[in-house]
Design a protein around this nucleic acid. Structure first.
Lengths: 340, 340
DNA sequence: ACCATCCATTGGAACGTTCCAACCTGGTGG
DNA sequence: CCACCAGGTTGGAACGTTCCAATGGATGGT
């Protein structure tokens, strides 16, 4: 194979021009659907391009046009359906606007994520969307100076980047209000640790409990946005001997961990203990899980993120915008009246 | 804003060279870690680059080097955990080899997918990986001529592209053997429709039933790789009045649909009917679902796909390779002895 | 018949890199 | 003392596009 003439070299705009008997400029015009081209030439160019299997080189194109039509997206956890739903929203909005998506997961570490972001910057993506980032706000802002940037599902008041989040404080309040309405008084919250939105949910939980006059009965145990996080949480509640009648988990996966931990101890849901999750993912809806959950508009979060991006890239907006989406409650079978 | 001097223009290699008092060639050498550079100059260049916030333009770079270090990946369905796990494998292997991933979903339609592939070709990705494609083999082969291409979870004997699949025929056999061993005779298979791997599973099911001398008791109903697909399947079985004692669903999501359909009719699993899924995703492992399932090595499938790609891109392999991974059975609570 | 106008088309300069051949500058061996 | 070499550095061509100013014909008004 070594000395073989390179027959596989990809055709360039010049090859097409030569074959069609026109200049490369004319080919360029045709490929970009300019309307000043005569029908005869246009047909000739298209025929030549078709015959050669020509595809414009996007690298060369964006080198001169200074636009890539690519948006970089970092996802904190691919296994969490919440994030994939947000991504689905981004994909849809991207496609509708002729944009491509470069996806990366930062291995759930801030370092891996900044590395991913750096690659995006080198690729000169038109913008970057962080879905549930673990990177601190200061670092994010620095990047925001260099590139349009929107953070989804991670709160910030930054004057330089955009964001779209669910009102998590209110989401937590909805959960507490439901439980209190059902007669619960001793309520525990298992947190999402350092994950996106975790601290807002804790804050909302505390505030709501205080609002109900139950501040001193609020239990908060450290967890994580995973099934294991929920299991650990239940373990903690047990070992501390303060079992509540209701548990509000930071997300659905943690809630499923809670269900699991409770089942392992023979505790019946919702007769003995009520459980409520967050996100209202497909998981919660499964008949066999049947989890009451705080609903987040994930798809809308994705499309909104992309639109915020485009407002800068296409619309030229300079100032920061922060969009808040409203949560609502989806009541299923995992919540019931408090035992008397 | 209009007449404002463009202070935001990104620094180029020339800016760095000027600031460091060297030629652009020298900067290039430093950025690529060449070892023929003196320590003094190297330090000067790095300092200048740091100070200016310089990041090499990947487009310009790959325009001349004819390498992008990007691999394009199409995913048929983001919501299916099987696919995201495969993607996770690809990501890991990609990162380990200094590659980036460009992800796209073709909206589950062949047209959307070929469009996505076309974009990859324009971007001059070093290769393309299709995860569970809906595109027909002939079209795929055409693309394989132009670009390195590997198909994951979609069988092909193509002499031009690579593939990595699970031995689905054997997987189906494992399922049948388990059920027959438990005394089942009337067994239904709900198919995955036109999805990747569906036809192999049907074939394996038929062959295994025949091997057990149960060919005429095998029931095959058309389904889909979704929860709805499983529900429809159960509906069909009911309306045709041929309820089997065991159902083998084409994947876990369909199996969950089956569980749901059966529960809605008061049929108890596994006492009345045994259910078995395929993929052994996280879903199957949830305590509340507890589904027996045929296990696929999804992460390995992803890393293998990426490695096959690199064998061509880096190693220069020209001929096609087809890798088959072995399935195994994960037995949980949804299968039991046939009712007498 | 002549000039201004308009339209389709063209050549060449960018874009920001890499790569190669050529160039210095000391040292080293004959 | 000169030729040679090696290590460090450099200029310029190339990569495949877009964009702009310029060109050449045809058209139309006077």
């Amino acid at each position: 194979m070594r000395g073989m003439t390179d027959t596989t070299r990809k055709p360039t705009i010049n090859d097409v021009a030569a074959k069609a008997g026109v200049s490369k400029s004319l080919v360029s015009l045709v490929m970009n659907n300019a309307d000043s081209v005569s029908d005869r030439r246009r047909a000739a160019v298209l025929a030549a391009a078709e015959e050669l299997g020509y595809r414009p080189n996007a690298n060369a194109r964006s080198l001169v046009s200074q636009k890539t039509h690519v948006v970089g997206v970092t996802v904190s956890d691919f296994r969490n359906p919440f994030f994939t739903d947000v991504v689905e929203g981004i994909t849809t909005a991207a496609k509708a606007n002729g944009y491509q998506m470069l996806i990366n997961t930062g291995d759930r570490t801030p370092h891996g994520e900044t590395e991913a972001i750096d690659t995006f910057l080198q690729m000169r993506t038109d913008g970057i969307i962080l879905v549930g980032t673990a990177v601190d706000n200061e670092t994010i802002d620095q990047i925001g100076v260099v590139s349009p940037l929107v953070s989804a599902s991670h709160a910030t008041r930054s004057p330089v980047i955009d964001s779209v989040v669910t009102n998590d404080v209110k989401g937590a309040r909805l959960a507490v209000e439901l439980l209190v309405g059902l007669g619960h008084r001793d309520i525990a919250h298992i947190t999402g640790g350092k994950g996106a939105g975790a601290s807002e949910r804790v804050r909302g939980f505390r505030a709501a409990m205080m609002g109900e006059g139950l501040a001193e009965r609020a239990i908060v145990v450290e967890g994580e946005f995973t099934e294991s996080g929920g299991i650990w949480g239940v373990d903690d509640l047990f070992s501390s001997g303060t079992m509540p009648t209701a548990v509000f988990a930071a997300n659905d996966q943690a809630a499923i961990g809670v269900l699991r931990g409770l089942a392992a101890r023979g505790i019946v849901v919702p007769d003995d203990v009520s459980v409520i999750g967050y996100d209202d993912t497909n998981l919660a809806a499964f008949e066999h899980i049947n989890l009451t959950s705080v609903h987040q508009q994930r798809f809308l979060m994705g499309t909104t993120a992309m639109e915020l991006m485009l407002e800068r890239v296409v619309g030229g907006r300079q100032s920061a915008r922060h969009v808040t989406l409203e949560p609502r409650l989806t009541v299923r079978g995992s919540t019931g009246r408090a035992p008397s």
